[in-house]
Amino acid sequence: MSNFYVERTITKDGGQSVILVNENYQIIEEVALFLNYLEQKGRATNTIESYCRSLKEYYSWLSYENLKFYEVNQRLLISWLDFMHNQVGSPKEKSPRTVNKHLAAVSSFYRYYVDVKGFVVDNPFISSSDSTSNTQYYVQNINPRNVNFNMFRQKEPKKKNTLRLFRNQVEVLYNALNNLTKVKEINTRNQLIFRFMYETGCRIGETLGLRLNDYSEPDPIDDFGLIKLTEYTPLYHSDHKLKTGTRIIPVSMDLIYEIDEYVCNVRPQLDDIDTVFVNHRNTVGKYMIRNSIDDLFSRLSEVTNIKCTPHTLRHTHGTELKESGYSEVFIMDRLGHQSIGTTSKYMHISYDDQLAAYESFILSRRGSL
């Protein structure tokens, strides 16, 4: 069985790309074309890498079975499922979510080649109302938009919503940041990062990629300022990449003042670095990367015994907006979602707010009788 590796490369414009190579470091061209398609569609580098890692496992199975990807049919995919459970990662049964992630990635790979009419005309992962029992390639032309369901997708158990925080938890976490280190400047920066994510719902990449010209000037007359999330080329680091492009969001003027105070009086200055948030030790003044934030939130969760990640703050922000009556359309735009369906997943409304809304509904109904 051949070995395959996921590698990141630098493009001509200074950006990053992802490729799959074999043990001789030869690029797997059909995968490269598919990943380039995802890049052209504007998918984030981390998302493309996730697809590539699933295809790495799939190509390991193809090598194990001595198959070409265009030779696979639904009957053979039973072997792929077995390989996934027993030889991918740790040798234990994979969760339905993990299985479905790999299935979705590889199915998208086949769907791409069905659309461009290259190599295959049938997606072996999909059962279609138009398909017959004949699974040979180049026999029939199937429109991928007529497909009905994925033959191998597994049912995922519903999870309890544990992503949103409540106000008392937010206060505990925020205050704990002031004692997480003995360096006052670092604690000040960390509290600002926490507050920025909580009050804007920004992702890690959007927060770390924020630059000095991306927030409005402090103005004592106005109650609100603006944060502009901008896609820069080239980036300092791939961790700064925006997932859904440029947008402008309103924020409180208090937050603008706190950002400006940090930039003017606390932030180490380097002429060639203009991200708002920078390192305060080791590489002083240099831009921050995701690992630093992940480590920060891991230590914060351990100290407070409250599970919190940057994405938890994003969910909390969206939920609080919804609870306050903010339109889902505006929440979608503010959070940078591409569909209302994605926004609805962030709506973890508390019981008290549901009760208050229902009481209001009952009172309005009684008034109309």
Rank of each mutant, 00 (worst) to 15 (best):
Y5C: 02
Y5Q: 05
T9H: 10
T9L: 15
T11F: 08
S17V: 01
V18G: 00
L20N: 02
N22Q: 04
E23I: 04
N24E: 13
Y25C: 11
Y25K: 10
Q26T: 04
F34C: 07
L35Q: 01
E39H: 09
K41T: 02
A44N: 08
T45W: 01
E49V: 04
E49P: 00
E49D: 07
S50I: 01
Y51V: 00
S54K: 11
Y59L: 01
S60D: 01
S63Y: 02
L67C: 04
R75Q: 14
L76K: 14
S79W: 08
S79D: 13
W80P: 00
D82H: 13
F83Q: 10
N86G: 04
V88I: 08
G89K: 08
S90A: 12
S90M: 12
P91R: 11
K92M: 13
E93L: 14
L103N: 08
V106F: 10
V106A: 06
V106W: 06
S108Y: 02
S108N: 14
Y113T: 04
V114F: 02
D122L: 13
S127V: 12
S127Y: 15
S129R: 07
D130W: 05
T132P: 00
Q136L: 15
I142Q: 07
N143S: 13
N143V: 01
F149T: 08
E156P: 08
K159Y: 05
N161S: 07
N161D: 06
L163P: 00
L163Y: 05
L165Q: 05
L165W: 06
N178E: 03
N179Q: 06
L180P: 02
K184Q: 10
E185N: 11
I186A: 13
N187G: 11
N187L: 09
N190Y: 09
N190A: 10
N190L: 12
Q191N: 15
R195K: 15
R203G: 06
T207V: 11
G209R: 00
D214Y: 00
D214W: 00
E217N: 06
P218R: 10
I221S: 12
I221E: 09
E231I: 04
Y232T: 08
Y232A: 07
Y232L: 07
P234M: 00
L235S: 09
Y236N: 07
D239T: 14
H240F: 02
K241T: 03
I248D: 09
S252H: 13
E258L: 14
I259D: 07
D260L: 04
C264Y: 02
N265S: 09
V266H: 09
P268M: 01
Q269E: 12
D272L: 06
D272T: 13
I273V: 15
D274T: 11
F277C: 10
R281N: 07
T283F: 08
V284C: 03
G285V: 06
I289K: 04
R290D: 12
D295E: 10
F297S: 11
L300G: 02
L300N: 04
E302R: 12
E302K: 15
T309R: 14
T309F: 07
G318P: 06
G318C: 05
E320K: 03
G325M: 08
Y326G: 02
Y326Q: 05
V329W: 02
M332F: 01
D333H: 08
R334H: 09
Q338L: 09
Q338H: 10
S339L: 05
T343E: 07
S344R: 14
S344P: 00
E359F: 10
S364K: 14
R365K: 12
